[in-house]
């Protein structure tokens, strides 16, 4: 399945030489990271890096440790071993809300929106770390708090336009179909203006048309906003079309790392996905 024509993506990357040196800068580097829950090793001595401006896919069979990997990256889990370097700074203790203020946003495998709030409010929560007015001005509302609210609303409306969800702005998200909920979740992550965007199965459970839309948005986010993306996805067509480099995990170990076509041809990857006869 060709979601986006792959040559086009490659071309645009090759045509603009300005992007080339930018891509070599390492945004996030994971070195010998291990994470275990009791006796279960979810992640076993994995090292890879994410370069600024690329789309980096993380794939692997179920239970390979992909989501745990994202949770380590955004500070939800603390790895027992190994070190993580983000923007050249070595990370020590980490909390998810600190990861957000450093520029890491994510979406979830199962939609994790705030069901009781409208689309607009959901996206506005993504701006909450950037809002500064204190309780006193919030009580009065008119004045600084309102100005701040309007300024952020403008940014949020830009994102709403970008993702084409203007028509559901005031709808409670609980009433939206699944595909749109996923898009609202992407919008909320974008509202955080992240440098690194982590997408956990953005196309799970979508039909072909919705997948094409989502792929288009991911490419737009990457190319127009310049956001670095780390992506977990099971649809191999999507992965091969969208990503610049792919890392393959299996049982918590890294089994391959490289450009999509190289990974596709890797025997160990094929074995992991298809199984080996013993």
């Amino acid at each position: 399945m060709s979601v986006m024509e792959r040559p086009e993506v490659v071309e645009s990357a090759a045509v603009s030489p300005a992007q080339e040196p930018q891509k070599r800068e390492v945004l996030l580097d994971l070195a010998n990271v291990s994470l275990s829950f009791g006796g279960v090793k979810a992640i076993n001595n994995i090292s890879f890096d994410i370069q600024r401006g690329e789309v980096r896919a993380i794939i692997g069979p179920n239970g390979a440790g992909k989501t745990s990997m994202l949770n380590v990256i955004n500070g939800f889990y603390q790895p027992q071993e190994g070190q993580i370097t983000f923007k050249g700074e070595r990370r020590t203790q980490m909390k998810p809300h600190l990861a957000v203020s450093q520029g890491i946003a994510r979406t979830f495998q199962n939609v994790a929106l705030f069901k009781g709030m409208s689309t607009l409010d959901n996206i506005m929560t993504g701006r909450s770390t950037r809002m500064r007015q204190n309780m006193f001005w919030q009580l009065l509302y008119y004045g600084p708090a309102q100005r701040e609210e309007i300024a952020h609303r403008k940014r949020v409306e830009e994102i709403i336009d970008f993702l084409e969800i203007a028509h559901i702005r005031h709808t409670p998200v609980g009433k939206l179909p699944y595909g749109l909920q996923k898009r609202v979740e992407l919008a909320r992550a974008l509202a955080m203006e992240p440098e690194l965007l982590l997408l956990d199965e953005p196309m799970a459970g979508m039909n072909l048309e919705e997948k094409e839309d989502m792929s288009r948005f991911i490419i737009d986010v990457n190319e127009q906003l310049g956001t670095t993306i780390a992506l977990i996805e099971h649809d191999m067509g999507v992965v091969m079309d969208l990503s610049d480099r792919v890392v393959v995990l299996d049982y918590g170990r890294k089994i391959a790392d490289g450009p999509p076509d190289e990974v596709q041809a890797n025997q160990e990857v094929i074995d992991a996905y298809l199984g080996v006869s013993h």
Binding site: G116, T125, G126, A189
Partner: peptide
């Protein structure tokens, strides 16, 4: 919005910062 986010899904609230 902070409060409603905590009410609706506290883990997601933490992960949006």
């Amino acid at each position: 919005r902070l409060w409603k986010a905590v009410r609706d899904m506290d883990i997601a609230a933490e992960l949006v910062g």
